[in-house]
Amino acid sequence: MSQDKHEDTDAFPWLGRRLLWLDNRRNVNRIVYALYGLCAALFLADFFYHKHVYLGVEELPGFYAVYGFVMCAMLVICAKAMRVILMRREDYYAPRDVEAEEYPEDQLDRAEHDA
């Protein structure tokens, strides 16, 4: 999804160039499908070994999977709802309370500061 199709990718580090396939939407989709497959496999794995657990609830097949999925979905939805009440502008507390550095610190060339 690179904005600049003619970007000089040769300037990227070696590892960065190796990973450029991540930019391709189809490849991302492949990863997602791989995740789906992995999840399905993990869910099914529960039926193929003997669980050593303490709690009855843990013995349910796929308990951890369902718990993880449901709770995380709930987490995100609750958090999103919290935004309605809690979100404020960045200068809510003070005009310059949350500020990005004006420049990246390493380009500031401050002798006393950072290199």
């Binding site: 789906y36 993990l42 529960d46 843990e58 999977a65 993880g68």
Partner: peptide, 15 residues
């Protein structure tokens, strides 16, 4: 296995 289930299904939820 249980830990992997927990984590990957969380990742699934995220995705």
């Amino acid at each position: 296995v249980t830990q992997l289930q927990l984590l990957f299904f969380s990742a699934l939820a995220f995705t």
